[in-house]
């Protein structure tokens, strides 16, 4: 599904990603952990196509297509979804209309008809339940005045409606209280399928108690320095990152 080879990326002439390799197969869930500033969000943004990040070397293939040639909206249409670490507030743009426009743009690119208002609302109601999203939020401006937790739920709600092939969840668990975390995790689990892959960027092993990852990676200083299974996440929780860094430096 996703194949990242030797990816190097810069922001403002500073190297942030320094040779990332990652292979993700359909249906797999990969957790990426790592210290602050190690490049996790950069990787997520590069995948989604943010243009202030420059890929200086390496390649990213998504279902065989070279992502470098594709605009963010084309990537979204191809089935990529980024749940933002910091969802953007957009005053004056209605949340539910945006979602409808997004869904219909994706459907159109696949040669499917646009959903009419009734069909769309049926889908919305169904998916809202997955993350117990407060109905009032539908008709507000995108993320405007939403609490931190509401913003994160809204991201997962969007994912549930758009049904991407690959979802990148950048710290969706940060800022959620225990109950909200469970609800969001249940929503994510409900979206799991043999065709849908996910990348979970997180600092907390706790999330991985609810959403079982197939693989866990440590990203430090722009590189994946260790990969393992969920056991690795538990070890990181106990011992921090220093030992992994030392191990990597020794190798």
């Amino acid at each position: 599904m996703l194949s990242i080879k030797n990816l190097h990326a810069q922001v403002d002439d500073t190297d942030i990603l320094k040779g990332v390799d990652l292979e993700i197969k359909p249906g797999e869930i990969h957790a990426i952990m790592g210290p602050n500033g190690s490049g996790k969000s950069t990787l997520a943004n590069v995948l989604a196509g943010r243009d202030d990040y420059t890929v200086t070397a390496g390649e990213i293939l998504f279902e065989g297509q070279n992502l470098a040639d594709m605009a963010p909206e084309e990537r979204a249409c191809a089935g990529l979804f980024l749940a933002f670490q910091y969802p953007v507030e957009i005053p004056g743009v209605n949340n539910i209309y945006l979602l409808k426009a997004a869904l219909n743009a994706i459907r159109k690119s696949r040669g499917e008809d646009a959903l009419d208002a009734v069909e769309f609302m049926k889908l919305v109601r169904e998916r809202m339940k997955l993350v117990k999203l407060n109905e009032d939020l539908l008709n507000r401006s995108v993320n405007e005045g939403f609490s931190g937790g509401e913003k994160k739920r809204n991201e997962i709600f969007q994912m549930a409606v758009l049904e991407p092939k690959l979802a990148i969840l950048d710290e969706t668990d940060s800022g959620l209280d225990i109950d909200a975390l469970k609800i969001v995790a249940e929503g994510v689990n409900a979206m799991r399928s043999p065709e849908r892959s996910m990348i979970l960027v997180t600092h907390y092993q706790r999330l991985l108690d609810y959403i079982k990852p197939d693989h866990v990676h440590v990203l430090a200083d722009g590189k994946i320095i260790k990969s393992g299974d969920e056991q690795l996440a538990k070890e990181l929780e106990e011992r921090g990152y220093e030992w992994v860094k030392q191990e990597a430096a020794a190798a």
Binding site: A48, A71, E73, A76, F81, V93, A102
Partner: peptide, 12 residues
């Protein structure tokens, strides 16, 4: 905001 919208399949 532009990037957010584009990541939601809205063209530039």
């Amino acid at each position: 905001a532009l990037f957010y919208l584009r990541s939601r399949a809205i063209d530039e």
